[in-house]
Write a protein that binds this DNA or RNA. Structure first.
Lengths: 221, 221
DNA sequence: ACGCAAAATTGCGTACGCGCAAGAATCAGT
DNA sequence: ACTGATTCTTGCGCGTACGCAATTTTGCGT
């Protein structure tokens, strides 16, 4: 009898506890970072607040900043996939992907944490790397839409989209020229809003997305 | 005037020393890794062999593996840019980029070190991250070709190309996911050579490259 | 209910990443 | 050549990352 599943959930107790500590660590990391500043919080404190040992922390996160950023990026990855799946199947792939991604990065519910991230260099780099986390779920959603068994194409497109988002974020926090240095380097001197940068960046990839779209009829530009 | 241009030589003594220690550290890291195995070499040993302090090592490389990988990836980044510039200007952008990139990743002169990298997990991830290093020089070459003043488009395309290379490498080193079953129940085995994976991955982005090409006339394919 | 296997947590020890400040080397102007 | 200003190097110290092995918890068969 292999079905010994707990009636409570379809997930074993083990997995639930794992997820619980994961969530606890994320929440504690974000809360402490917002309270005392991101540089004045030690791994020991986070582990303490989550009720685990510091060693356990490193079983879940490979760096201190990763937990803080993960709290913000956590569900954004999954939301992109689900939102993309709920788009009408008749919609062109390019438009669906671009609208979905842009929508997730401008409606900021975590505005407070977002400014902290963009103003702390260590968190910034970690955050920019974190957009790569959307690749797997995005690739799955794209593969589902184009109905391909070969995962390479979907992975490449998802990775390209993630890369475009990353570039847009880099251009957002850093104006490209070195001469544009403000005296303090203190942040987010944006000549253009993030939504514009995101749209322009993703628009570059639209032709590639159209080429992979199985039901591309005539799609206006 | 804070010009960094000594009249004596093309490059000041300061810069030359910097480059020399950089090169010494790379060479020492690669040599020691090949001799004693990548896990049996300490930062102290590398710094010792290069004649600098361990602290100086971290002024040049942010991680231990980075030096080893940098020894292999070092000039590949610059070679891509220069090769791309030497292509005939009339050639379509997509073909030039794809051919150039593929060409740089299959003619392996460092076959011995390459196997060490692909067999060591820590080095593998570092190597896959290292392909992102081609982005700046590639972006410069692309921007030069499309004659755009806006760096965003060139950056996005370069990042997308780098991401495609990264995905191809990931598919190369990883046997396909354990659950990769097609609808017929056949396992999709991607035991294909790296050059094929690279071409397929980059071909996905070809439409985007063509769309950005200023003199795209009639391009076959 | 019992017991064994798999897996997670934890303490410990070692090595790494990096900020800081003092010292040395290098560069520009006089 | 002298001088002051950058810039690189280095020792020191703190906090982090991670392998290892012992312990505890959970999963599953009997």
């Amino acid at each position: 009898m292999t079905a010994h599943e707990p009636s409570n959930n379809q997930l074993g107790l083990r997995e639930r506890k794992k997820l619980a500590t994961h969530e606890a660590l994320r929440a504690a990391a974000l809360r402490l970072a917002l309270e005392h500043g991101p540089d004045n919080v030690r791994v020991n404190d986070i582990a303490d607040a989550a009720g685990v040992s510091p060693r356990t922390y490193n079983n879940y996160f490979s760096s201190r900043e990763q937990a803080i950023v993960a709290a913000v990026t956590a569900e954004r990855s999954l939301r992109i996939a689900t939102v993309l799946r709920n788009r009408p199947a008749t919609e062109p792939l390019a438009a669906a992907v671009i609208d979905t991604v842009v929508e997730q990065y401008i409606g900021e519910p975590a505005g407070d944490a977002l400014t902290m991230i963009t103003t702390t260099p260590r968190l910034r780099t970690e955050f920019i790397d974190a957009v790569a986390a959307i690749q797997p779920s995005l690739a799955a959603a794209i593969a589902e839409r184009i109905g391909q068994t070969d995962s390479l194409i979907a992975d490449v497109l998802a990775a390209a989209v993630a890369a475009a988002v990353r570039v847009a974020l880099q251009h957002w926090v850093q104006p490209p020229g070195e001469g544009m240095l403000s005296d303090n380097g203190f942040v987010v001197v944006t000549d253009r809003p993030l939504s514009d940068l995101l749209r322009d960046a993703l628009e570059c990839l639209a032709p590639a997305l159209r080429a992979a779209d199985p039901h591309r009829d005539r799609q206006s530009r």
